[in-house]
């Protein structure tokens, strides 16, 4: 099944924007759902017993309740209202009356059965409302996402695009949740038609700090983006776009130019 899922290739900016927006949506939705459920609990506590019973107690639950009290199906229309059956109904707070047509010649009528069922429905509802009230009194728990990071393993591809084509640079956002208007194109310098783009020499050294990580050949390159944008227009390899595809763990071959990971860190402040 995994083989049938071919990862979609997206522009890097579109991919990252989508990842960020989906993370945001997930956290907001989680919070919304929690608030909504808390409101639902409080609203249910305000409902009358009979209204709560009508909404939340099913016929099957009434049947199950009565089956526990009367396991031998003693309670039915026509059953004599006396002895043990009467005692058990009384213990449930049910008293049948002939003048209310619940009894006929001391036997339970269809109306009597209906009233018993309604009474049981309210018993079950009362138990549930009491439980909800206890939960509310103790304080409803909330799960708050205060910090986190989203990591996506990806394959990077460097693609050459025609100069001036609509899919160039940051405009290659089709299929993402970000619209082109959300992603303004950065200034790029087009290569001459028919010529391969060439990396232009960097005129000024970029402000950066390279921190060696001990015992490995890894480097952490911490860029000061603001200074970079001021001092260095984005003119390096203007016709080369970086696109990404989610890395496949099952594939045995890859044509990726580079493999890596996009990591997004967020926090509640």
């Amino acid at each position: 099944m995994a083989d049938t899922l071919i990862p979609v290739e997206l522009g890097l900016s579109a991919f990252v924007a989508k990842l960020i927006e989906e993370t945001f949506d997930a956290v907001i939705c989680s919070n919304y759902e929690q608030v909504k459920k808390q409101e639902d609990i409080l609203l249910n506590l305000e409902k009358s017993r009979s209204e709560f019973a009508r909404i939340y107690v099913t016929e099957a639950e009434i049947f199950e309740y009565l089956a526990q009290v009367f396991p031998n199906n003693e309670l039915k229309v026509g059953a004599p209202y006396q002895g043990d059956l009467e005692e058990r109904l009384t213990a449930m707070g049910i008293s049948l009356l002939a003048e209310e047509k619940e009894l006929s010649e001391n036997a339970i009528t269809a109306q009597g059965m209906l009233n018993i069922r309604q009474h049981v429905r309210e018993i079950i509802a009362g138990e549930r409302q009491n439980t909800l009230a206890k939960i509310a009194a103790q304080g409803l728990p909330r799960i708050v996402v205060d910090a986190g990071q989203i990591s996506a393993k990806v394959s990077f591809y460097a693609n050459k695009v025609e100069s001036g084509s609509p899919g160039s640079a940051a405009q290659s956002t089709q299929g993402s949740s970000a619209s082109p208007s959300d992603l303004p194109a950065t200034a790029t310098k087009a290569a001459a038609p028919g010529k391969l783009p060439v990396a232009e020499p960097v005129k000024q050294p970029l402000p950066r700090e390279i921190k060696e990580i001990a015992t490995t050949r890894s480097q952490a390159i911490i860029l000061n983006r603001g200074e970079f944008l001021k001092s260095q227009p984005a003119s390096v390899l203007p016709n080369i776009n970086i696109s990404v595809r989610q890395a496949s763990e099952t594939s045995t071959t890859t044509t990726a130019n580079m493999v890596g990971e996009v990591l997004i860190k967020f926090k509640t402040v």
Binding site: A178, D182, L183, A185, L206, Q232, L237
Partner: peptide, 23 residues
Amino acid sequence: GTTLENIFIRELDPVVESIIPRL
């Protein structure tokens, strides 16, 4: 070196400029 870094910065600039501040 700088070429790769610059490409990543260039690609991600719209996201950092637009999407993240909005959210």
